[in-house]
Design a protein around this nucleic acid. Structure first.
Length: 438
RNA sequence: GACCCCAUCGUCUAGCCUGGUUAGGACAAGAGCUUUUCAAGCUCUCGACACCGGUUCAAAUCCGGUUGGGGUCGCCA
C-alpha cells in the first residue's frame, strides 16, 4: 500500500513550489491507489499561524488535491519526546544546555558516527552518497522541549507508515541526516524521490520579486485550478506523446515517479497564461458564469439579479480570448457600466473622423429594426455604408470606440446586439455631443 | 568555501536507460491566411544537444574532465 504525505508548515502561504510538490504526491497516491496524507508541521509556535493554515488548506482544496488523513505535529510532541528519550537511554544521544541564556531546558542531541558512508537511493536522482564526517551531531529535541524538523519528520514518516517521501530538491541534504535517524530508531526505510526546484525568471529561487508565488494569488488573478495544476505538473514532467493539456484521469493511469526529470524548471507566466486560455476556451459556459458572478459583483457591475441568458451570451462572446477570468471583467466592462469612458486609443479614434451624422442616422436606423440580432444589424449597417459610399473601416472602428470605449474587442455586430437598442442609442447620442464639443 | 545535484531552441520539454532521428512538440518571437479591431484558429519561419577529451565504424545518447547554474550547510521548517 502506497502512502505519501505533503507536510507544509503554516508559517506562510502555500506557494507554487509547495503546490507542485503536493500535486505530485497526490498524483502518485492516485496512480497507485494509495493514501495521501496531509501533515501540518506546526512545531514552530512563534511563526505558525491559523490564517496560514487556512490558506494552505484552501489552496489544496481549490487545486483539487484531496487528502485522506490529517495530522498536526503540535499534537504529537509526547511521541517525539518518547523516541528521543529512547535514543538517550541507548546512549546514542546526549543532552546539552543551550547557548542561549534564557532557555532553561536541555536539548537532546544525536551523536553522529563520523566514519560512515550513507547511500541514498532516490527514485528520481538515482544513487547519492554522503560521508557522515560532513554531518554535525543532530539536535533531536530543542531545549524548549520541541522536536526539530528532521527528527519529527522521521518519527512521523515512520509511524504514519509513509512509503514514499516525495519532496523538494532542497531536502536532499537533509536526507542523510534522516537516514541516520531511521537506522538509529530501527525504522523501515522509505523510498525517496526529490523533485527538482522551480526557478524564477532570473534563474534564482522563485520569489515575490520574480512574480506571484502564492497559490491564492493565482486564484484571485483568475486562473482555473485545472490549468494551474496542469502547468505545475508540466514543470519537470511530461506525459509524453507531445501532450501538454493533461487529462488528469489519463495521467493517473500512466504516472511514474521515475519519469520526472532532474532539471530545475523556470516558471513561465506566458505559458501559464496560454494554458489557462486553453482551459477557459473549453470550459462549460455555465461554469464560467458561476465563477464570473462574484467578480462582477465585486466590481459593482452586477446588481443582485443577473439576466442569466444574456450574461451567458456575453461570456460566450469573450470566452475564446480570455487568458484569465479577470480579463473578462476588464474587457467586458462596457456591457455593465451605464456610462463608459473611452480609453486613450478609442478617444483618438473618435477624433480622427467626425461621425456624428453617421451616428445619428445609425441610431435611428438601428432603433427601427424589428429584429435586433447580429445578422439584421450587420445588414442594416452595410446598407447604410453602401448608400452613403462609406468604407466599412471608416465607420466600423469609430462605432466600436463610441459603443465600447475601446478599439479592440469581439465582433461589433454581436456586441451591438447584446448591448441592446437603448444603450447603443444613448451611447451614439453621447458620442455626438462629445464630438461636437471638441 | 565545503558537500550534493543538474546541463537539449530565450522558456517548458521529447529523444538518453537499450548509441545510427532531416534532434520532434509546446510557449514566446517573426511572417502569412482569415477578418471589422484584438484575440482564437490554420500555415510557415527563426531557434538547441555548454565545452574539451575518450570509447566506437558511428555519441545528444556511454565514460572522464572543464565550465556554468542551482541547492544545503540553524536548538527554522
Amino acid at each position: 500500500m502506497v502512502r505519501v504525505r505533503f507536510a507544509p508548515s503554516p508559517t506562510g502561504n502555500l506557494h507554487i513550489g509547495g503546490g507542485r510538490t503536493a500535486a505530485f504526491n497526490w498524483l502518485f497516491a492516485k496512480a497507485n491507489n494509495g493514501v495521501f496524507i496531509l501533515r501540518i508541521e506546526d512545531t514552530d509556535a512563534e511563526r505558525s499561524k491559523k490564517e496560514y493554515l487556512d490558506e494552505i488548506l484552501n489552496s489544496l482544496k481549490w487545486l483539487g488535491l484531496d487528502w485522506q488523513e490529517e495530522y498536526f505535529q503540535s499534537k504529537r510532541i509526547d511521541i517525539y519526546r518518547e523516541y528521543a528519550q529512547k535514543l538517550l537511554g541507548q546512549g546514542l544521544a546526549y543532552e546539552e544546555k543551550s547557548d542561549k541564556e534564557r532557555v532553561e531546558g536541555k536539548a537532546i542531541i544525536y551523536k553522529v558516527q563520523k566514519d560512515k558512508k550513507i547511500k541514498i537511493k532516490d527514485l528520481i536522482y538515482g544513487d547519492i552518497e554522503f560521508e557522515t564526517s560532513q554531518i554535525k551531531d543532530q539536535v533531536l529535541m530543542k531545549s524548549d522541549g520541541m522536536p526539530t524538523y528532521n527528527f519529527a519528520c522521521v518519527v512521523d514518516d515512520a509511524l504514519m507508515e509513509v512509503t514514499h517521501i516525495i519532496r523538494g530538491d532542497d531536502h536532499i541534504s537533509n536526507t542523510p541526516k534522516q537516514v541516520l535517524l531511521y537506522e538509529a530508531l530501527q525504522f523501515k526505510m522509505p523510498d525517496f524521490a526529490h523533485l527538482p526546484l522551480i526557478l524564477g525568471k532570473d534563474g534564482g529561487r522563485l520569489s515575490k520579486r520574480t512574480g506571484a508565488t502564492a497559490i491564492t494569488e493565482y486564484r484571485s488573478l483568475g486562473f482555473l485550478p485545472e490549468a494551474l495544476l496542469n502547468y505545475l505538473l508540466l514543470l519537470s514532467w511530461s506525459p509524453g506523446k507531445n501532450k501538454e493539456i493533461i487529462d488528469i484521469k489519463e495521467a493517473i493511469k500512466t504516472f511514474k515517479l521515475e519519469s520526472i526529470n532532474k532539471t530545475a524548471a523556470t516558471f513561465d507566466m506566458d505559458k501559464l497564461l496560454w494554458m489557462n486560455n486553453q482551459y477557459l476556451k473549453e470550459a462549460d459556459t455555465e461554469k464560467l458564469f458561476d465563477l464570473l458572478i462574484p467578480r462582477l459583483k465585486e466590481k459593482g457591475f452586477l446588481k443582485d439579479q443577473a439576466d442569466r441568458d444574456w450574461l451567458k451570451k456575453v461570456v460566450k462572446l469573450f470566452q475564446a480570448r480570455l487568458n484569465t477570468l479577470n480579463d473578462f471583467v476588464n474587457w467586458a466592462d462596457f456591457f455593465f457600466l451605464e456610462d463608459i469612458k473611452p480609453d486613450e486609443a478609442a478617444a483618438k479614434k473618435l477624433k480622427e473622423r467626425d461621425c456624428s451624422k453617421d451616428f445619428k442616422e445609425l441610431a435611428i436606423r438601428f432603433s427601427k429594426l424589428k429584429e435586433f440580432d447580429t445578422e439584421t444589424i450587420e445588414k442594416e449597417f452595410r446598407t447604410y455604408l453602401a448608400e452613403n459610399n462609406i468604407q466599412s473601416r471608416d465607420l466600423i472602428h469609430p462605432l466600436r470606440a463610441a459603443l465600447t470605449g475601446k478599439t479592440i474587442g469581439p465582433g461589433l455586430f454581436e456586441v451591438i446586439s447584446l448591448l441592446g437598442k437603448d444603450r447603443i442609442t444613448k451611447r451614439l447620442k453621447k458620442a455626438c455631443t462629445v464630438a461636437g464639443k471638441d
